[in-house]
Design a protein around this nucleic acid. Structure first.
Lengths: 187, 187
DNA sequence: CGAGGAAACTTGACACTGTCAAGACGGCGG
DNA sequence: CCGCCGTCTTGACAGTGTCAAGTTTCCTCG
């Protein structure tokens, strides 16, 4: 199974190898050849399945958005609480750092990929739920924007190491404190 | 002055060339050799002044934090309004995208560089002003964290193209709307 | 059953990258 | 005028992504 010429599910294996490598090097330093070596295939094998380096990262990002959407749905379903969804967003960023770090870097992706956009839409829908009325045609819901900005900014600044040590030591508590002092007036 | 062997202020010229290039390619695709060519020097000249590719990006990020601190100070000085400082943060991200995009990518920088850390501290101080009491020793002020998260997340999501078109068309109005529905309870 | 063709993967090459060592150049103090 | 040191160049090296061509395997259809 492992040393066949036809791998079986090399696409899957490459994505997993990429996530591993991303955890060690970060998305901008990812090496396609290193991913291929990790999966035990030749250096040009990834290109066959993903076309591009950006194609591989797009596949990773797509899977990331799917997982994020799942996590947000689960949080909403089990608690019905708007803030719990936000906490789940932050948790996801911490637990799935390799995914999260590639999901919001359009310059490394194929941003127009249909699968990616579908997964993005699923995540957005899961996040917006509970933020009042959905936006009118072409418009936006300020409350939804505000909530997304808050949780996303918290996650980014946390991962980038811009917060004090105490935040990194107990991010959940820190986010709870942040959520406690923040009120969104649903209009 | 321009074609001397000793350039005069090559360091400065390289930073400016880097910012130009960053505006076109983004920080992860920046090529040192392209920067050198743009500045009209040999391909190894940047290494002499900055040691590293990360060193050059660190210099750019440092200058970015200085400029951000200036912008935040100015906003506070002229308005005395907490939300105006937030708006200035978002404006800075839009107007100085090449800087902003490199400032929060520690994996591309030398995060322990003393000059960088000084400039970061200046920005943080400018942002925290007006967010209630400064944090206790080793602790954090939840209101300051929340405000920073909100403006930073808004800026990141905007630049990454994750917001509806209407937001991109008039970001200032969108941020005003976001700030209007958000209340921070200073404790 | 066996031939043909498509799909999966490899091999080799190319231009480009960052980094390093060694050398050429230029201004400055003695 | 000499020597020296900081500034920059030249040349080389290993590693990168991508592309074209070749090889291997599987599947299907006669």
């Amino acid at each position: 199974m492992t040393d066949r010429y036809h791998h079986g599910d090399l696409r899957r294996a490459l994505i997993e190898a990429a996530v591993e490598a991303l955890g060690e090097t970060g998305p901008s330093a990812l090496s396609l050849r290193a991913v291929a070596k990790r999966a035990g295939v030749s250096h040009a094998a990834p290109a066959h399945h993903f076309g591009d380096k950006a194609g591989l990262l797009t596949a990773v990002a797509t899977e990331g958005f799917e997982r994020l959407a799942d996590a947000l749905d689960r949080a909403w379903r089990t608690t019905g609480d708007f803030y719990a969804v936000g906490a789940a967003y932050v948790r996801f960023a911490i637990d799935n750092r390799p995914y999260f770090e590639t999901m919001f870097r359009p310059e490394l992706l194929h941003p127009d990929d249909p699968d990616l956009q579908r997964a993005e839409a699923r995540s957005r829908a899961g996040l917006y739920r509970g933020a009042g009325d959905p936006p009118a045609d072409g418009g936006y819901n300020p409350t939804a924007l505000a909530a997304w900005s808050l949780v996303h900014g918290f996650a980014e600044l946390l991962l980038a190491g811009n917060f004090p040590q105490a935040v990194a030591d107990d991010p959940d508590a820190a986010f709870r404190a942040v959520a406690t002092v923040t009120r969104f007036e649903v209009e």
